[in-house]
Amino acid sequence: MNVRKDSGGMGIIYFAWHGKAQERAEIKGLLKANWRRFAEKVLDESITVGLNRVSRMWMRDDLFVCFALPQERKDMQEERLLEIGNDLQLDWEPRFMDAAFGGRVPELRLHAGVSFLDGAIASEEERLYDGIKRAIVHGQSTGAAERSLKRRELEQILEERLIKPVYQPILALQQDGDTLYGYEALSRLPGSRWFDGPLGMFQFADQEGLTYALDRLAREKAIEGCTGLSNGRKLFINITAKIMNDSSFSPGQTLLLLQRYGLSPHHVVFEITERTSIEDFDAAKRILQHYRNQGYQIAIDDAGAGYSSLQSIVELKPDFIKIDRSLISGVHLDKMKAHLVQTFSDLAAKMDVKLIAEGIEEHEELRYIRDLGVQYAQGFLLGRPEPFGE
């Protein structure tokens, strides 16, 4: 591979097949017979659609492709290189499998890793060796290029505070007319390329060790966005159980932020999601007691859909239990769901805890849960999430 220094920058992409399927003799043989011919053919095609000054090198069955990047900012070059690597991996993997094996092969994946060739290294040989080594390291995990692109977007979201808060009304159910009790703050990602919604973003942040940073940003944006919250109205803010195990978690930051926007802890209910388990109830109770001492209230979210709803309710003694919409949807038609909601209602009454039914979408559901004694409700029937004041 002949590599020429270029003022626009040079990128290298490493391609290699990984997976236990290669231990099978027939798969290994078909890879050996077809992979190099396939890659050379599609590379020749790719040169005509935007890759400039392409050179290539094979190390056994591992392919290294080097090409020139256009002159632009370094961060844009990095993103372009990752996008090319990701696009080629997503294109080549199914095409090759269809051609060589007649379809997908379980436990066989094409890995792609990328790197820049460091212009500060004077020796062309050393420069190439360094780039190859870094590309191999980057490509060790499945979907490495896509993961890097997601990480870049998440870091941009955190740095530029790109989360947009919306608020879904929660109504107090009364026989003579329902009244507004408060709002649940939710996060939205306008224009996100790599995350199809906040759930996927939070799951990825968890994988990348950025749960606390993202949770804090969502909490701050929720508070900033509801300036003018009426006295007596409640703001329900989601927090994940995992952040209570984070050594950098500082409950006092929320209090300072509330004061800055003219709010107090008495406005806020923290919803602890039940979609992740609480590993240390003693630690969780200590942190929540710190909150309670300041005037906050606590809700268990997604009750009935998580790992340990009843244990969380018993251990944490929340002020509110939010019944997951999976139990509310069609509750008037499903006796088992009705029995479960009734059980939550009986338990809440004995513990002096308030119930909130989530996901109300039909008038029949609303009438039914009101008759069961559920005190509060939210859902599309009652109001969709909107920016505050709309």
Rank of each mutant, 00 (worst) to 15 (best):
K5G: 07
G11P: 02
I13L: 14
Y14E: 09
F15C: 01
A16K: 11
H18C: 05
K20G: 04
A21V: 09
Q22M: 10
A25I: 08
I27E: 08
G29M: 05
K32Q: 04
K32L: 05
R37G: 02
E40Y: 07
L43Q: 02
L43C: 06
D44N: 12
D44H: 13
E45F: 04
S46V: 09
S55P: 01
F64I: 03
F67A: 12
F67W: 00
A68Q: 08
E72C: 08
K74Y: 12
M76A: 14
Q77C: 12
E79C: 11
I84A: 13
N86E: 14
Q89R: 13
W92N: 05
P94A: 07
G102M: 12
H111S: 01
A112D: 06
V114S: 09
I121T: 11
E124R: 09
E124P: 14
I132N: 09
I132F: 10
R134E: 15
H138N: 15
Q140K: 15
A144D: 12
K150M: 15
R151A: 14
I157D: 09
L162E: 09
Y167G: 01
Y167W: 05
P169L: 10
A172R: 04
A172S: 08
D176E: 12
D176I: 00
G177W: 01
L180A: 01
Y181F: 15
Y181H: 14
L186G: 05
R188V: 01
R188D: 10
G191V: 02
F195I: 05
G197E: 13
L199H: 05
M201Q: 09
L210W: 01
L210N: 02
L214G: 01
R219T: 12
E220H: 06
K221A: 11
A222F: 01
A222Q: 03
E224Q: 15
G225S: 08
G225C: 08
G228V: 04
R233Q: 14
L235V: 04
I237Q: 05
I239L: 14
A241N: 06
K242S: 14
K242P: 00
I243S: 06
M244F: 15
F249Y: 15
S250Q: 15
S250I: 04
P251Y: 08
L257T: 13
L257G: 02
L257C: 07
Y261I: 10
G262A: 09
V268S: 04
F270L: 10
F270W: 13
E271Q: 15
I272K: 07
T273K: 03
E274H: 10
E274V: 10
S277T: 01
D280N: 11
D282P: 06
A284R: 03
I287L: 10
H290F: 00
Y291E: 09
R292H: 02
N293H: 09
Q294R: 13
Q297K: 08
D301H: 06
A303L: 03
G304D: 09
L310S: 10
Q311T: 12
Q311C: 06
V314M: 11
P318I: 04
L327C: 02
I328V: 14
V331Q: 03
L333P: 00
D334M: 00
K335L: 15
M336G: 10
L340G: 11
Q342C: 07
F344Q: 11
A348D: 06
A349V: 13
A349N: 10
K350S: 13
V353H: 04
L355A: 12
E364R: 02
L366K: 01
I369L: 08
D371Y: 00
G373Q: 03
V374P: 04
Y376Q: 05
G379R: 02
G383I: 06
F388G: 02
G389A: 06
G389L: 11
E390Y: 08
